[in-house]
Amino acid sequence: MSGLRAALDERRFVVTAEVAPPRDADPEAIGRKAAGLRGWVDAANVTDNQGANVRMSSLAGSVLLRQAGIDPVMQLTCRDRNRIALQSDLVGAAAVGIRNVLLLTGDHPTLGDHPDAKPVFDLDGVQLVWTARTLRDDGTLLSGRPLATRPSWLIGTVENPFAPPAALRARRLAKKVAAGAEFVQTQYVFDVDAFARWVGMLRDGGVTERCAVIAGVGPIRSRRMLSFLTGSVPGVHVPEGLRRRLAGVPERRVEEEGMRVCVETIQALAAIDGVRGVHLMVFGHEDEVPDIVRRAGVRPFAELEGRR
């Protein structure tokens, strides 16, 4: 398990994936998902009650993923915790050996399975990144109290290059990088040209030198998934051209066409100066990751590593 930091340091093209913790206390669930990914990804995100639905905590999930041999990226959101709990979880993560954290604001509770919950949002995503850097680099809590043993995780964030206001999105990431973000994983990229323009703005602002851009990608498997992505998931933008392309094939071939689009997208993204890797979103189809990585040809040694 060399992990995300090593891959970035060695300037390899990074592949990350996502492991959603189970909705119950099954200790084996994470390991089952990890089995298909081992050797094919540099790290995998463990989501924090994604979509504001209750699941096993990302801290517990990250520990289990680490035991299963994959470098976890522990996601932590501002939705459910105030600054005391956030700092406590960050410190705890460092103590149990979690080497990467991904800090975000989080979906609003009204979108999840407990819409009656109290939204916390004591800090916002930028302030949480800032707080984490303070814990690590200054060795102090927000209160100013010193930490005798400092954490050493890599700090990540998220950005959606396609959400309005478009002109602000590169500057917003620049702000997160100023606060301490060292890598960013993006929302689904379907519009490669628009994404390339956003990365261009980041390059011009010197942001790509300080922050590794990892583009979010994933296959569209069916027309149903397409309409779900465009209608129900906040912040996903599917361009008209892609919609027409998927509409132009019979339903039984949509899955294969969607996979082809995904592979082409990864190859196009790998050619953009400043893009350091891809984040694969396959939602429960972890077994597809090796196939995607192999077909995209972005990790020539992946199969070898897989056998190790």
Binding site: G106, D107, L111, F121, D124, V126, Q127, E159, P164
Partner: peptide, 28 residues
């Protein structure tokens, strides 16, 4: 709705509306 002090979240709809209430324009 998330009381963000540092800019918009990633959930802003393409038309600029809020992810929590689509009838309202995102504050940011």
């Amino acid at each position: 709705p998330k009381q963000l002090r540092n800019g918009p979240c990633g959930g802003v709809r393409p038309d600029g509306s809020c992810e929590v209430d689509r009838t309202r324009r995102c504050v940011w």
